[in-house]
Design a protein around this nucleic acid. Structure first.
Lengths: 142, 142
DNA sequence: CCTTCTTTGACCTTATTTGACCTTTAATAA
DNA sequence: TTATTAAAGGTCAAATAAGGTCAAAGAAGG
């Protein structure tokens, strides 16, 4: 629909990354702001809210003359924290800590291994992260 | 039968959806309220009472600048499990049948409700179906 | 009457946009 | 080489722009 400036900048950056060979780009904050007729801090805002480490991006920058912001899209194993085996490890840890009994551990593992098996990788990772977060929260409450 | 504002808003939204290509529309709550000369929360009321998941609709929204409410009409011809609430019902049934104890029931429900929350609908459905299948299988084995 | 559905409004939370001011670094002048 | 200046990017808070919640008041229908 009618996207906000932030949305459009996000899109733009993602296209640039997609086109890049190394999943990495360098932008000039001021120049990008100029392109979208907004203030530079708007770009910072977009980077802060949509290119976080949790989203799978890594950022570096340098100030001064020839300054830049370098954005790298991480391969999901690193950025997303949790591939299935990382999550399995996490479950095992909970088991060791007696926060889950044997049956619960087996059940959760079974679900992790089988649910969302055929999803594209990035969604699978999000599901796994969701499961981990939900489980943590549940154990906090109960 | 003098239709209420709520009825008219409902009709209006349904026409918009029918006209859309993707069975999905985005509205601005305030704008729609303006159109019908009512308060914005009236729109919320209509969405809450007539566009529930049980009615076959899926809703997403965002606040702030360029906020929106996105309404998707679900395709009902899925043989299996549709939304989270169908799955929740399934879990409750397992609980009634004593296949899951109280803690297990709560845990699984918590995971279902929270995991994959922000996925696009079609993936959410697939995750839910995966969870149900995995759970069935686990209970067969154990 | 009593219940349920609708309408309204006050107040809350979240997201975006903007701008003033700060810090770091490269380039340049002395 | 050192000091200065200009050129970046960073931070933060205020202003603005949405949507959400909830409860009270009103209306419709048994």
């Amino acid at each position: 629909m009618n996207k906000s400036i932030a949305d459009r900048i996000e899109q733009y950056i993602k296209v640039l990354i997609a086109r890049s060979t190394e999943r990495q780009i360098e932008i000039q904050r001021a120049e990008l702001a100029e392109t979208f007729s907004c203030v530079p801090s708007q770009v910072t805002y977009v980077l802060r809210t949509r290119f976080t480490e949790k989203d799978g991006y890594y950022k570096e920058s340098r100030r001064g003359g020839r300054g830049y912001v370098r954005i790298t899209e991480l391969q999901q194993e690193y950025g997303g924290l949790l591939g299935s085996n990382k999550l399995i490890q996490f479950i095992d840890q909970l088991s060791t800590e007696k926060l889950l009994n044997e049956r619960e551990t087996a059940m959760i593992k079974h679900i992790i291994i089988n649910a969302g098996n055929d999803l594209p990788l990035e969604y699978k990772i999000r599901v796994n992260e969701g499961i981990a977060a939900a489980l943590r929260q549940f154990l906090e409450i109960h």
